[in-house]
Structure formats: C-alpha cells, structure tokens
C-alpha cells in the first residue's frame, strides 16, 4: 500500500469485518497527520451505521406463505399426493365415488362462487390482491381465511384459515387438500393445507399465469388424493 486512500480502505474494511485494524494499518493512520484526522470520524460514522441500519422484520404471515410455496413446489419431495389405489385408507367404493366427484367438484365450486357468500372471485384483479374467503364445513358455522393472489407469479396463498383439525374419514386421518381446476379441465392436486403454530391453516397453489380456473379446498384422506373424493368447502376463481 502506498497511498493514504489505500490505508483508509484497509481501515474501513477492518471496521466492517469487526476485526479491528491490523497493527500495520493502525501504525500508519496514527502517524500520518492526514489519516490521523480520519480515524475518529470514520469510527463515529461506522458506529452510527452499525447502530442505525437494521433489518425490517417481515409480516408474520409471510413465513407460512414461503413455507407453503416450498411445500407445493413441483420439486418438493414431499407432495401430499398419491396414485389411485395406493392408499390403504381408501376402498374401491371410495375410488369410484372419487371419480364421479371429479366433475361435481368443479360444478360445486362454481356454485360456491355464484353464491357470492362462501367464495371469492379474483379473476379481474391484475395486481396482488387480498380477499376474505369463506370456509364452509358441512354442519359447521362459516369461518374465514385470507386469499392472496399474485397474478404475475401465478401463485395464490390461503392464510389464516380458521378451521378445526380435519375430521377422520372412516377412522383414517384426513387433511385439507388444495386443488387447481383449469377451465374445462380436471382438478389437479396442489398439496395440503398446513397448520401453523397459531392454529390457523395455510397453503399455496401455483397455477398457470396465462390460464384461468378455480382453486378449491376439499377434505381428503391423508396423505392426499389424486382425485377429489368430497365436495369443496371453499373456492376462488383465479
């Protein structure tokens, strides 16, 4: 190092690293009249920046959405789906009933949308939007969650869904399963809602940015099904 500028750069780097200046750097800056003036001022500015430049905590719900998006990522190794007949929890009668319900699922979701009470339509929004969505379990009072849709990314998040633990189906564990139903297409399983530490349920659905369709939630035998076996408890158009 030959110039005072280079000595100062070394000094500033040592401050940022928290290691303190080397003896060589300190020796120069203490003995050089020009650099000596900078020692204290640079230190003061450094201390103020270290104290003042801080991380802004993200909203608490963001973590659930991030984790849900990972869970439903195409590359996730633990997708909550299975092939027909691979579940010991499902009888052939259930499978038959499930195939019949495929068509009924979309129709029921549309009916939910048409009711205007228990569903939400976000299809006309072009920016990120949040909407309340009603959740209607059979025989239970209506509860609500938040649907956040990112049209540019093709991601819809369900957050803070106030739901009870899913009721077992014929003695077997069940779960809340998400579906994307492209217009004119068959339901595509999109993983399960996960329960957050606050007891609320969260999930994410990726859908084609250029496409249109419905997002729906059904109660299915764990660890999920490839085809719906029950009617939706909520739906949203994206």
């Amino acid at each position: 190092m030959t110039t005072c500028a280079e000595w100062e750069e070394e000094y500033l780097e040592s401050l940022a690293a928290g290691s303190g200046p080397s003896l060589e750097v300190l020796a120069h800056m203490e003995s050089c009249p020009q650099c000596h003036l900078l020692l204290q001022k640079d230190r003061q500015i450094h201390d103020a920046l270290k104290e003042g430049v801080r991380v802004v905590p993200p909203p608490a719900a963001l973590k659930s959405r991030v984790l849900s998006s990972i869970q439903t990522s195409p590359s996730a190794p633990q997708l909550h789906v299975m092939t027909e007949g691979s579940s010991p929890a499902r009888s052939s009668r259930q499978l038959h009933r499930g195939s019949i319900l495929i068509a009924r699922l979309a129709a029921a979701a549309v009916i939910l949308l048409a009711s205007g009470i228990s569903a939400v339509n976000l299809a006309r929004s072009s920016s990120v939007t949040n909407a309340a969505v009603a959740l209607q379990l059979p025989g239970e009072p209506v509860t609500y969650g938040i649907v956040q849709v990112h049209p540019a990314s093709g991601i819809a998040y369900l957050a803070n869904a106030s739901l009870p633990a899913p009721t077992p189906i014929e003695g077997h564990a069940s779960e809340y399963e998400l579906w994307y139903i492209p217009s004119g297409g068959v339901p595509i399983p999109k993983g399960a809602l996960v329960e957050g530490p606050d007891g609320q349920w969260h999930g994410a659905v990726r859908y084609p940015v250029q496409g249109s369709g419905l997002i729906a939630i059904t109660v299915e035998p764990a660890p999920g099904t490839m085809k719906p076996t029950s009617l939706p408890i909520a739906a949203a158009r994206v």
Binding site: R54, V56, P57, A60, A119, N130, A132, Q148
Partner: peptide, 22 residues
C-alpha cells in the same frame, strides 16, 4: 354474483424495526 370485497391485510403494513436477530 356478488363478489366479496377485496380487503387489505393489515399485516401487510405491519412494519417495525427491531434489533437484528443474533
């Protein structure tokens, strides 16, 4: 069809500055 009003989540604007986590 009566659409549910789009509501803004209050958590979106929930912004505070805290000490950087260790």
């Amino acid at each position: 069809m009566s659409e549910v009003d789009v509501v803004r989540s209050s958590s979106m604007a929930d912004e505070h500055v805290i000490e950087q986590a260790p």
